[in-house]
């Protein structure tokens, strides 16, 4: 455990000046900021909306961009950036000749990537809430303060986080094995396109394909049985696709360890 904590701290220390780390902060900050600017400029047109509708539209914009496009690509990029630090510096040999178990080094790296994804999703939820409230202060005609959606926003982003773990795990392993950017990125991109196709054609087994999970997660977030727009709504986090994503993540993570254990460091 000590080795894991030391490695995890070292991962933070190494990455804190890299784009991989900063992107998980800047991406939610910038997207939420620009949406807020849009709402600020078009406030007259949005003033007619109820608090709930306003929140849903405000949060929905960021969610739409993330869930359908950015999240899979971000997971692919994150998995690459955590491993590329070592590929670029040729430091796998020093990492694996440290007096630490390979398990500690591998798992710390993996969970650091998970941590960055979690941070990014958490910040999306946080910035959505902060900018929403800020807008109601700056433009009182926007009725953000009349309705509370904080918990639901948190739940949706948590669901998105879980749904991206499958992609993250697969891409983490690919980026660990291949030092160049194009192979894992290319495979990830093709799989992501397949995911989009499988969801948009309503393929019945698309829930089994990890790269489709973020899109499905957004589709399946409403608890069933509540037809039409309601005043209250509940988020269904643990749907079939999320379980598949978690299962894939767990299996690939363990498989990756066995590969790393046997791997010769060239």
């Amino acid at each position: 455990m000590k080795g894991f904590i030391l490695s995890f701290r070292s991962e933070f220390y190494k990455s804190r000046k890299t784009l991989g780390f900063w992107s998980s902060i800047l991406l939610p900050l910038l997207i939420c900021f620009f949406i807020a600017v849009g709402f600020y400029l078009k406030s007259e047109r949005l003033a007619a909306l109820s608090g709930m509708a306003l929140w849903m539209q405000f949060a929905g914009l960021a969610l739409g961009v993330m869930g359908s496009l950015l999240l899979p690509m971000f997971a692919i990029f994150l998995a690459y950036s955590v491993n590329s630090i070592e590929h670029k510096a040729d430091t796998w040999k020093t990492l694996f000749s440290l007096p630490m178990s390979r398990w500690a080094i591998y798992s710390a790296k993996y969970f650091y990537a998970v941590f960055l994804l979690f941070t990014c999703m958490g910040l999306f939820a946080l910035f959505t809430v902060i900018f929403g409230n800020l807008l109601s202060l700056l433009k009182p005609e926007l009725k953000f303060d009349t309705y509370h959606l904080e918990i639901e926003i948190g739940e949706i982003y948590f669901k998105l986080f879980l749904s991206a773990l499958g992609i993250l795990s697969i891409q983490f392993l690919l980026s660990l094995l291949w030092s160049d950017f194009l192979k894992p990125m290319g495979i990830g991109f093709v799989c992501f396109i397949l995911g989009v196709i499988s969801v948009s054609t309503n393929w019945e087994y698309s829930y089994a394909f990890p790269y489709a999970h973020p899109m499905i997660a957004l589709k399946s977030m409403m608890k069933p049985g509540k037809g039409g727009p309601a005043k209250e709504f509940a988020i269904d986090i643990f749907t079939k696709d999320v379980f598949v994503s978690l299962g894939v993540a767990a299996v690939v993570f363990v498989l990756g360890y066995f590969i790393v254990r046997k791997k010769s460091v060239k």
Partner: peptide, 12 residues
């Protein structure tokens, strides 16, 4: 140990 060219993080 020091193996081949030193393994150094260039951004640090």
């Amino acid at each position: 140990s020091l193996i081949e060219q030193p393994a150094i993080y260039a951004h640090m």
